[in-house]
């Protein structure tokens, strides 16, 4: 007996796979990114279906709302010549196919060996899903206690990425007029206005 949730699952899963295929096969990179966004979206749907609503919404917010926008930005502003993009395709195809075939074979062998059976060699299991505790509360509880250390270091990594972006790209250009808000606010009437008495017929 299928539950209603199953139907929703199949819908999301089918859309996910379809749009993921589209990402690979679409000719126009712009369409690829748009389909990628659709993929993220469906993945988020699956997460929510699993009961991981926080991760699902985060996926939408972070990947769809921020990262993919940056992708689009870059793609929109660079001039892509589609002919050049597709030029090397035929020559790379064989090596690509070989790599793909090898990976596929490995997956099959691994599957045959029961790698994906889900059995563990230990008696340890994942933490049981808490009852009646919101996702986000549960995450917060472990993130700021047990995982505090890697969490903080991850923050440092982001800091480094930010420093890097500034160091490698920021240039102080000469001849650009910048707004100095403080100077604008501090401007007084005496600074900018002078009353000159002009005698008739003489000019200034």
């Amino acid at each position: 007996m299928l539950a209603f949730a199953d139907l929703v699952f199949y819908m999301f899963a089918a859309m996910l796979l379809g749009s993921a295929m589209g990402v690979i096969f679409a000719k126009n990179p712009m369409h690829c990114v748009l389909l990628l966004i659709l993929t993220f979206f469906n993945a988020a749907g699956l997460f929510i279906l699993l009961g991981a609503e926080f991760i699902g919404l985060l996926l939408v917010m972070v990947y769809v709302g921020a990262i993919a926008v940056m992708f689009l930005f870059v793609l929109m502003t660079i001039d892509i010549d589609f002919a050049v993009l597709k030029e090397g395709f035929a020559s790379y195809l064989p090596s690509g196919l070989i790599v793909g075939a090898v990976l596929m074979a490995e997956l099959v062998i691994a599957g045959q060996a029961g790698l994906f059976s889900g059995a563990r060699i230990s008696t340890l299991t994942a933490m049981p899903a808490p009852d009646g505790v919101e996702n986000i509360r549960a995450l917060g509880q472990v993130l700021f206690t047990h995982y505090l250390f890697p969490f903080q270091v991850a923050a440092l990594i982001l800091l480094v990425a930010m420093i890097g972006a500034i160091v490698l790209t920021h240039r102080r250009r000469e001849g650009v007029r910048r707004q100095n808000v403080m100077a604008q606010i501090a401007r007084t009437r005496e600074d900018s206005l002078s009353i000159v008495k002009v005698k008739p017929g003489q000019g200034i």
């Binding site: 808490p130 505790v133 549960a138 509880q141 206690t145």
Partner: peptide
């Protein structure tokens, strides 16, 4: 005690 307030030392 994972999901109660775990005192942070």
């Amino acid at each position: 005690t994972p999901f109660n307030m775990m005192p942070f030392d």
